[in-house]
Design a protein around this nucleic acid. Structure first.
Lengths: 154, 154
DNA sequence: CTAAGTGCAAAATGTTTGCATACTT
DNA sequence: AAGTATGCAAACATTTTGCACTTAG
């Protein structure tokens, strides 16, 4: 996908395996390094950066910047094949920091709607909904009307 | 909004003025420092960071992380008057940086849907949809189907 | 043999923090 | 006087890069 050959080396193999072990979850470069270290395998983080960056360029991983202070997150792209690509959004709780994955028809509709009516092409991989998760929003707020929308600031 | 008093100091005044001068455009801390320096005014960047960070907490500025390698971007929030900003979303063009305001029934629906079905309280004032605006998305992409979702990589 | 990959440590960013000093109220 | 703010430099965190060395094809 990138026109560049890649050699099969032991470090590369380890890194790829480690990335696979994250399944479809998010991970950072540090996560990979840490996980490998736990298994007694050492790899230079520069190599991890290089590997992951290339994979992102090749479309095998998706790169996210979830929050300012946090490191870049990567995530395996599943079924990276055009039409089957799911609209996948993220919900980030401003209070506890939890990152929730949301995949649903409503969200898919929004993408179409924005395209048709507002002529704006949403990049769902970069879009994050901020707000309060179930645990952090009080029960009252979740069942209440439309008032008190202001979340307690960070 | 923050419960903390703030003193009127010369550096603070300069920073506020500089931020105002960016109108509704986005800017980084370096931008502010640079612009001030051009005018022969010096301020410690730590002070700018502190000022801007607090303003973001207070809801006067909005903080964006546009890209991994890029610094945090701030942008003045217009009409930051509590309830009026409800159900009001922003669309940010990743290419030209344009910030578009969107207020529509569909978006309002999403808020309810997320609350009812996903038990997540969206904070619409902090949520930004990233993507491509009408001008930056090619005509083909806007009328095309679901293929070619990959934005031109960095 | 040649192109590509690796690891280390240094450099480059971008942001935060400790602290002594200065300013506001 | 008490509470904030400031600026500097050092501390931090993340990512990139230069370079000598190894490895795959």
């Amino acid at each position: 996908m990138n026109g560049k050959k890649s050699y099969n080396t032991r470090p590369r193999d380890r890194i790829l395996k480690s990335i696979s072990s994250f399944e479809t979850a998010h991970f950072t470069v540090s996560d990979v390094v840490a996980r490998l270290r736990e298994e007694g395998q050492t790899v230079g983080k520069a190599t991890v950066y290089r590997t992951v960056e290339r994979m992102a360029e090749d479309g095998e991983l998706r790169k996210y910047i979830v929050d300012g202070t946090t490191a870049a997150c990567y995530q395996r792209v599943e079924g990276n094949s055009g039409a089957s690509c799911r609209e996948h959004f993220h919900l980030k709780c401003e209070k506890c920091g939890r990152l929730i994955h949301a995949e649903c028809e409503e969200l898919r509709k929004i993408v179409s709607h924005m395209k048709e009516e507002h002529r704006f092409l949403i990049d769902s991989s970069k879009t994050v909904f901020y707000g309060l998760c179930e645990d952090c929003a009080g029960e009252e707020e979740l069942s209440a009307g439309e008032k008190n929308k202001n979340a307690p600031a960070k």
